[in-house]
């Protein structure tokens, strides 16, 4: 051994145990911090990765979209009547529900709840699922009009007014291919952002609906990206 050479002293057993213990505690703390960070970040992006709570909130009346859309074939616009005309899609009034349910659905618990609300002259206190912040002015009308009609499916990044991107077309018609034309009804446009609500028993949010989500789509579709398009 060369004089002055560094030689590692083997630590005593007691010290070794202490180091192992400290290391274990440190590792656990680190793992905890990482877990919390991922939870916060993923919640921010609107897509919880670990604790996936994809179910939507419980509503005062368990309204089955499946029954109305899939089984009866109603259009979204039949109930959400303002969607082609204004900023808000609007939730139908109890009176509109009652045009059918005054005769339809005897003996169903949820329909009885609806009738009770109607008799009491009250509104249903639905829990809001899709919400953008107050400083965002989303307009349904413009988006419905942009995507409904006869559209040519393209794979470009900047689409013209008569074109639709493949990713969006696939959400409406899964077998869509580039180069085909597709007839999009107003009620089918909803799918692009809201997912297939017609197949949901409880409505849940399928897209993050954060600003990057909006801006990405606006860029891809050559829509205005000036701040005051939405923020005013």
């Amino acid at each position: 051994m060369i004089p002055g050479d560094f030689q590692l002293q083997r630590p005593s057993r007691k010290k070794l145990m202490l180091l192992v213990l400290l290391g274990g505690v440190g590792l656990a703390a680190f793992a905890g911090i990482v877990l919390v960070a991922i939870f916060i970040i993923s919640a921010w992006f609107g897509r919880p990765v670990i604790f996936g709570f994809d179910e939507g909130p419980a509503q005062p009346i368990a309204f089955p979209h499946t029954r109305h859309v899939e089984d009866l074939g109603l259009d979204c616009t039949f109930c959400h009547r303002n969607v082609e005309k204004g900023a808000a899609a609007t939730i139908p009034s109890v009176g509109l529900c009652m045009t059918c349910h005054i005769t339809v659905g005897d003996g169903l618990a949820e329909v009885e709840k609806l009738r009770a609300t109607f008799e009491a002259g009250q509104a249903i206190d639905w829990v809001r699922v899709h919400r953008v912040p107050d400083h965002v002015h989303f307009v349904h009308e413009a988006h419905i009009n942009r995507f409904s009609g006869t559209k040519q499916i393209v794979d470009d990044l900047s689409t013209g007014p008569d074109q639709i991107r493949l990713v969006d077309a696939r959400k409406i018609e899964p077998s869509a291919r580039v180069g085909e034309t597709i007839d999009v009804a107003a009620s089918q446009v909803c799918t692009i952002c809201h997912g297939n609500v017609g197949a949901m028993t409880t409505v849940s949010q399928v897209r993050p609906l954060k600003m990057n989500d909006c801006v990405d789509c606006h860029r891809d579709n050559a829509a205005p990206t000036d701040c005051t398009t939405c923020h005013y």
């Binding site: 912040p133 400083h135 701040c227 005051t228 923020h231 005013y232």
Partner: peptide
């Protein structure tokens, strides 16, 4: 705050 292409001097509250 900036001048947008509509000739408006706009204020973006969330910024």
């Amino acid at each position: 705050t900036y001048r947008n292409d509509e000739g408006l001097n706009v204020q973006i509250y969330n910024r």
